[in-house]
Each structure stands twice: as structure tokens, then as C-alpha cells.
Amino acid sequence: MHIQVILSMGDSREKYNVWTIEESNELLKIMVDAAMRGWRDKNGVFSKKTVEKKILPALNDKIGCAKTITQYQSRLKWFKGRYNSYCKLMRHNSGFGWDPETKKFTANDEVWEDYFKSHPKHEHYRTDTFEDYEDLRIVVGTGTATGKHSIGVGDDTDARKFEIEENRGTSLIDDYVFDHNIGEYFVQSDGQ
């Protein structure tokens, strides 16, 4: 189901198709695959040409829609905002972590309560799952896709495998993993 909104700008009218969940999810998958293939430019972004010639055709063919570069840019901005809200949570306090198995943010009760004092509308972060966090990290965050596990756009293989460039002497909050067996966070090493 596509919802169309007519935007009136003076005498011109532009038809805009609102993004469905399916379209957004598929675009994110395609962007992860494109990052894995090394299609970003030197600045770490996808060029307009790459988006128009590779990403949008793959999306439009797969979903049967007709998304444009303007609509892509709008969705990319939305992806960045969503990822930034996740990062704001992770930066709030050193007590937050990420559990890649449950797809949830983790912290002890005291850390959550402290966070909710300044972000009362985010109480759902404690219980919700965030299936897109790792993909958004690759597409717009600090995750660096190396192309090592590259697959073809449209393959049924999961392209969400990626490597992080070595952080010499530093650990990012995203490098911490919660171990349910010992009840602590630890820096995940390459050997795990």
C-alpha cells in the first residue's frame, strides 16, 4: 500500500510516496550490501550516480515502486536521525551496551532510571528490540564495511557481516558486549 501526498509549492505540485516499512527495510538491506561492495566514495557516502544507477533500481525492482533520488535523500536523513537517537542513548552514560543476540540496548536499573529522568519519552528503549541498529551502524554510523563478505544485490544471503577497522588504543561504546553468564560488559576481541 502506497500513500501519496501532494505537496503544493507555489504553482508546482510534486507527488510524494510515503515510505512503507517494507520499502525502508529493503532500502536499508540494499545499502548494507552496497557498503559491503565498497560502493561508497572517499568521503564514505554513496554518490548520486551510485544511488541512481545501482541502489534505486535494485529497490524499485524488488519492491515494485518508483522511488527517486529526492525520496532516497529524505529516507537517508530519516535513517541518520534514527541512528543518532540510538547513539545519544549509548553516549548518555558509560553503563549502556548492546546485545546483538536480543537486539536490545542493555544497562542496569540505575542507569536506565537516570536516563529516563532526562528522556522520559524513551522508556520503550528499555524493552523494545531494534533490528535495524547494526545495519544503520554500517550505513550511516561508525561501522565500516570492508567488502570482504560482498554478495550480489538481490541475493537471499544475509549481508550484515562486517568488520570494524581497528581502533588503536581506544574502545568505542559499540565495541562493548554484554555477557549474560557473568553479568558484565567486555570489549569484544577479534578472537570471539
Rank of each mutant, 00 (worst) to 15 (best):
H149N: 13
K49C: 07
C65Q: 10
F79G: 02
G191Y: 02
Y133R: 11
N181W: 06
V51E: 08
H180P: 12
K48R: 13
N167M: 11
P100K: 02
K48A: 14
T50H: 04
P100T: 01
G183S: 15
E113C: 01
V187L: 12
D155E: 15
Y176A: 05
Q73S: 07
E113A: 06
G154D: 08
D132M: 05
T102Q: 10
M90V: 04
D135A: 15
K161Y: 04
F130G: 00
T102R: 11
L76W: 06
K104T: 10
E131Y: 04
Q73A: 12
V51K: 05
L136W: 01
Q188I: 09
N60G: 10
K77V: 11
F105S: 00
T68I: 08
F178V: 10
Y86T: 03
K77N: 15
N181G: 14
S74C: 03
T142L: 12
F186V: 13
F105G: 02
E101Y: 07
E113G: 02
T127G: 04
D109M: 10
V140S: 05
R75H: 05
K48M: 14
L136G: 01
D99E: 12
T127Y: 05
M90N: 01
L136E: 00
T146W: 02
Q71L: 03
R137Q: 13
Q73R: 12
V51L: 09
Q71G: 14
L89T: 07
T50D: 11
A66F: 12
K117S: 09
V139P: 00
K48Q: 11
I69K: 01
N93L: 04
G183D: 15
R160L: 14
S150V: 06
Q73H: 05
D156G: 15
